[in-house]
Structure formats: C-alpha cells, structure tokens
Nucleic acid binder design. Structure first.
Lengths: 213, 213
DNA sequence: TCCTTAGATGAAGGAAACTTCAGGTTTGGA
DNA sequence: TCCAAACCTGAAGTTTCCTTCATCTAAGGA
C-alpha cells in the first residue's frame, strides 16, 4: 500500500453546528479535568468522552486519535501563555528596560499561576514526543517577541538581545517550574515572584551599558 | 482478599552472584539506550530485556514492574547529579561566595551535560507520576547542601540562604533545561554557561551586604 | 412536511503490553 | 564429584485500551 499515509493529526471534522462546538469544548475541558483527577496514566478516550457527556465515537469524529486530543489540550494552554507574552511585549515596546522586564515577568507568572494545578498537570503531557515539539515551538515564538521588545529599549545593551531574552526565559520557566513542582505552589508564590523580579532587575541592570563605571 | 498489598517497587531479588549483577547493569543500560533510540512510547519490558541480552523473565526477577525499572534508571541519574552537588558543596565550604557559586554551577553543568542526550531522554521519564517524586526528593536534598554551603560563607547575606539557594537552583535547572530542549545543546552550551555564571555573579553580589553603597 | 446532511452512539474488533510460572541451566561450595 | 541455590527462559494468560462502523437521531432548508 504505497499510497498509505500517516493519519492526520488535525481534526477530521470541523464543527459547523453549534451543538458540536459545544461537544468539542466539553471534550477538551473533560480532558483537563481527568488529567487533574486521575493523572495521565488513567486517562482513556472512553473516560474522557464519558466525562464530557458524549460517547467515544463522538470524540473520534473530532480527534483522529488520543495523541491529537492531548496535543490540542496542550496547545490550547501554551497558546494562552504565548498570547499573554505577545501582548505584554507589544505594550512595552520603547519603554525603559527597567519597566519592560518586570511587566514581562508579572504577565508570565500571572498566566502560569492562574491555575497552578492545570499548568502542573500539563507538564506530564508536554513530555510526550509530540507535546515536546509544541512546547518548543511556543517557546521559540515567545523568544522572538521578547527579543523584538528588547530591541526597542532606549538603553544600549552590552549583550545581544537574543542572549538576554534567552536568560530571562530560562529564569522564568526555571522558577515557575520549581514552584509548580513544589507541594504548595501558592504558598511560596509571592516570595519567589518577588525574588525573581529582583534577580531580573540586577541582571538587566548589569546588561545595560549605562551602569558601567 | 483483605490481605492483598500493592506490589513493592523495590527489587524482588538482589543480585548475589557476579553473573546477575552484570545482568542488572545490562538491563539498566539497555533501558537508557532504548529510551534514546526509540523513545518512551516504544520502550517495552520485552524489548529492554532483548537488548540487554536477557529474557523478560529475568528482568522481572529484579524489577517488580516496568515502572520500577524506569524509576531505578531515573534514580541512578539523579543520584549522580546529587552526588556531584554534594561533593562540590562540601569542598567549597568557608570559601568566599564569589568562588562558591561558580564552582557549583560548573559542577552541575558538567554533570548534566556530560551526556546531554541521556539527560534529555530522562526528562520524559521524570514526568510520570513516580518519577516526579524522585526528582523532587533529589532536588530537595541538593537544596539543603547548597544552603549548608552558603551558611559557611564569610560574607553576610541580605537574604535567607534558602531563598538564594532556591533561586540558584531555579536558574541552573532553567538554563540547563532550555539547553537540553534545544535541537543542538552542545552548540549553545559555552555561551549559555558563560551567561549563567554572569547572572549568578551579579545576583549573589547583589545579595551580599558588603556591596551596599 | 420531507429529505439531506450533520451529529451521536457504543458494542465489538483487534493490537499491544505487562506479567507470570513451570521448567531448564549455571554456579560454587562441600 | 555432587547438589542446592541462584539464575535464566519465553510462551501464554490476562488486562487494558484504542479505534471503527453500522445504525440511529436531530437539525434545518426547500
């Protein structure tokens, strides 16, 4: 069968009636809920459908396979994060770096920590081969936004914006991951956010040529 | 069956003869190799045994189930990292902070990047429910070592050592993760390492009371 | 009202692993 | 040499779950 192709991962059918749009949303929501309640291991397509108030067959009309379902769920979340970053980066263009960076960090943190349980649960999904690609793509997009923002800064920089953006991203994800992996993220959240702001502040100050003696 | 208990995750049998020790090592090595070559999805106990030159039954004599096998593999790797951190932390006690921190970072990076492929492949394992716990425990242990080291620093600090250690750990894992998730870790490794050292330097300097104007 | 299309159903097929166990082989001490 | 314990084998049992498809219902224009 030379003509055989791998099954597409895009929806096999797009909802046209209002009825089915609701179904798709319910399925995606049920996926997250099950991920939270039962963990990735116990997440089956049948259970997802059941919780969504639909039948397995219905699920398979909109998602060609289980992997596509998980990818869609992850993509939804990552797109939210990417969008908040895009927004704040465009808002902050031209402002002094000392304003840019805290705004970026606050926006990122607010987005990631709005629902810590969900963010944490999705880390499990993103480690699967395909999820990994999605996370990487999103991260790359976000990096470009940050770079573009940094390039509009009035201060001259002692480093390439790509490097600064990379480090900022590493700090943010590093700290947020550590938080999300801790038993009680909310507890340490304020202190860690505060310290991350401080860390970023001293870093970008050190990267600003004007502070050189 | 009220007496039924969950199967233990510790080895059901400990190797006593040299022959079986070799088998266990071969199995652990085969697990990593398969993880690298085929990915987590295609890793089965049968395939692991096959690659180790043993049979499935043998595998199950030393690992009660697949999960235990993966956990053992992960634990081996995490213990290596933890040990290098412990070592460097104990070596650096009493030295000035400006010496401690670069030493810590260099040791951590060297350990994580000695075999980038393996480190990256194991991230997939650590997202499974049990692996997550192992990573957390190891990280907690390492944190304590870092704190203990910081407490012997001659300089007075403007922050609790726990906070500084936490941030250092977040930076290190954040940067190393970003590297490992990139397509060519080796390529950006020197530059990122350099910049992380710089970041940490300005941070701990800012945390040292002596630099206050 | 009628009919075409969209949407929903869920039992059953089928493939993929995990895990066991009854029986064989090797080792090393007595 | 001999034997008991350690070690190894791998086909088969069992479970679990993904995915399909023949069939049914609902929607909405003509």
């Amino acid at each position: 069968m030379p003509g055989a192709v791998a099954p597409s991962l895009t929806p096999r059918k797009s909802p046209v009636q209002q009825r089915s749009s609701a179904t798709v949303e319910a399925i995606l929501e049920a996926t997250i809920q099950l991920l939270l309640k039962e963990g990735k291991e116990r997440l089956t397509t049948t259970r997802v459908a059941e919780r969504a108030g639909a039948s397995v067959g219905t699920l398979y009309q909109y998602f060609p396979n289980k992997s596509a379902l998980l990818q869609a769920t992850l993509r939804q979340h990552m797109d939210e994060i990417a969008e908040t970053i895009r927004k704040v980066c465009s808002e902050q263009r031209g402002k002094p770096i000392a304003k840019m960076v805290p705004a970026l960090i606050d926006a990122f943190f607010a987005a990631k920590m709005r629902d810590p349980k969900v963010s944490a649960a999705l880390y499990a999904v993103s480690s699967d081969v395909d999820g990994w690609r999605i996370a990487q793509q999103t991260s790359k997009r976000a990096l470009k936004e940050i770079v573009a923002m940094l390039e509009t800064a009035p201060e001259p920089l002692t480093r390439e914006p790509e490097m600064i953006a990379s480090m900022l991203q590493s700090m943010m994800t590093g700290v947020s991951r550590k938080l999300l992996e801790s038993p009680a993220p909310e507890k340490h959240f304020p202190a860690m956010r505060q310290e991350l702001l401080f860390l970023a502040e001293v870093y970008v100050q050190a990267c600003s040529a004007s502070t050189a003696a």
